[in-house]
Structure formats: structure tokens, C-alpha cells
Simulated assay, not measured.
Amino acid sequence: MPEAISGLHHVTAIASDPEENVDFYTDVLGLRLVKKTVNFDDVTTYHLYYGDGVGSPGTILTFFPFGAGQRGSVGRGQTSATAFVVPEGSLDYWQERFDDHGVEYDAVEERFDEHVLPFYDHDGQPLELVTGATDIEPWDGSDVPVEHAIRGFHGVTLLSADAEATVDVLETMGYERLEETGHRTRFAGAGDRAAFVDVLDDPEASTGMQGAGTVHHVAFRVSDDDAQMAWREELAETGLRVTPQKDRRYFRSIYFREPGGVLFEFATDGPGFDADEPLAELGSELKLPPWLEADRESIERSLPPLAAD
């Protein structure tokens, strides 16, 4: 059997306005914009990556900001929340910060002996801050005090359209069932970072609709190409339809849709976000892969300007 999946690599979501997206995730949440590139499958749209100071696997939230397109609605068959880790004692700070920035949030709740602050971004995407510990050092280039700063992902919640089948896939991936409460069952990967996946089994929930404010896919970590190809073979043998490997410049990927409706990706740890710019300059310029450089002029004309440009 291939190596067990340790946790998340990244989460990719859909947004509306790219400028508002940058403002929210850098100015409000205090994350670093680690890469500004384009959607390789639709070069008229940015692909924006946020994370810690170097874009470590397990910290990266990415967006396709499609502009004034269709608004999504979160429901069955989708990721219903993406959760970040913050240190114990930080939620009061974040509630005050959200008040200052006009961010919508819900009351703090207790879940599996953790404190959870649910909130929403500018497009209404459900997010959470969860108290805990991780090996990630936070980005220290924002005005968020380091002692309260986000330290990568805690995990994701999947509102599955077929919870039993989703669980089967997670267990094939080496995820271990930990505990459950109500409709929620928690699973953990083999690592200490971004390890948790919660599965919700709520047949009364409405079916989700993809659009701004929803997650496009969830990516899990694999160490390298060999591990990825071993997983591709393993998953295909279970009957899942897995794509060929795709070069995403900063990692390589395979994709499949698990039976509960969520698009999964397995992404390699390397080559990393310093493949085309120094760490000190991450996110400062529009970066294109070599196969798109010849079209740079037309691509730049098609993209809306960002204040950071």
C-alpha cells in the first residue's frame, strides 16, 4: 500500500472580485500572498495563493476569482468549511479584529474539546478558526500579532452526499476514525499538520451549487512523483476515475471526485513556490509557467489590475 496521507496540501476556492480577495486574506487574516499567477485552464482568471511565509504544504488557501459570476451555495457534495489553527487564547483577539473589519462571524462553539470560531469571507465562504498547536511558524509580515496569527490549516469539513462512501475513500487513504458527535465524524491523517477531515452526514441539507463563496477542491499531500503514481494506481483499482498527472508548476497533481461529491487532488510537496521567484519576493509579480510566457502580453491585458501590481 502507498504511504499514508499525512494531511492537506492546499484548498482551492472560488471568489468574485480579486482585489477584495487579496484585501481580505492579507489585510484581515494576515496571510501572505505567496503566488500570483493564472488559472492554467482559464488564463483570463488569476490564481492567487495565500499561506505562511514560504507557502508550506498544509497552509495554502488558493482562489480562482472569476469576477461577477455566479454566486455559489454551500450544501451536500461540497466542502462546507475550511478551518485554520490559531493558538489557545486567541479567539477574543480575532472577534475584536472581525468587529473592526466588519467581518461576519458566529458564536464560539466547542467541538471535540476545541474552541471554534466560525466566520465568513467577503463572498460568504464558511471558514473557521480552531484553537490548537502545529509546527507551522506564522507569517510575521502583517499587523496581526504573532502570538495570535494563523498557523496553517486545522482541516476541512466535508458535507458529503454519500457519507459512507466518502469514509471508505478516506480510510483507503489511511485516515483514522477518531470520534463523532451528532452528524459529524472526525478523521485524522498520519501527520501532525493540517491532519483533520470531518465528515458531515446530514441528509436534510440541500445540495450545494458551485460558485463564488464555495470550495472548488481539496488537495492532500504526497511526498513526490513516485508516491503520487503509487496512489494513482491504488485509487484506480478501487474504481475511482483518476486523471493523469498535471504540472501545476509549484507541485504536480492528480484529481478524482470521491463518491460523496467532493473533488480531491493529490499534490506533491515540491518543487515549491520559490521555483520561479526568491522567497523574499513571493507574490510580488505575476508569474507564468514557461509554456504560457509567449502569451504574457495578451494574458496581462485580459486580467483586472490589482493594487499590489
Rank of each mutant, 00 (worst) to 15 (best):
E265C: 01
I299L: 03
G30C: 09
Q70S: 11
V86L: 11
D201E: 15
R249G: 00
E137R: 11
Y46Q: 12
D42I: 03
R301E: 15
V38S: 03
R76M: 12
T157V: 07
A13I: 01
T44P: 04
T185L: 07
A15G: 09
V108F: 06
D100G: 08
V74T: 14
E258Y: 07
A190V: 02
A107K: 07
T243A: 10
I5L: 11
L48H: 02
A190R: 04
R257E: 14
E285V: 10
L170Q: 06
A280Y: 10
G270H: 04
A307F: 13
Q228M: 15
G283Q: 08
D113V: 09
D226M: 10
E237F: 03
S206I: 09
G124E: 03
F98R: 07
A190D: 11
Q95W: 01
G30T: 08
D198Y: 07
T12A: 10
G77E: 08
E109S: 15
R241L: 15
Y250D: 05
P138D: 09
S142P: 07
D276C: 01
T12K: 01
P259N: 15
V144K: 03
D295M: 13
D202F: 08
Y105T: 03
G272D: 10
Y49F: 15
F98D: 03
E277A: 14
Y250P: 05
S298I: 09
A275M: 08
D168S: 14
Y250V: 13
E180R: 13
P65Q: 05
V108G: 07
E176C: 05
G283P: 13
T44C: 05
M209N: 06
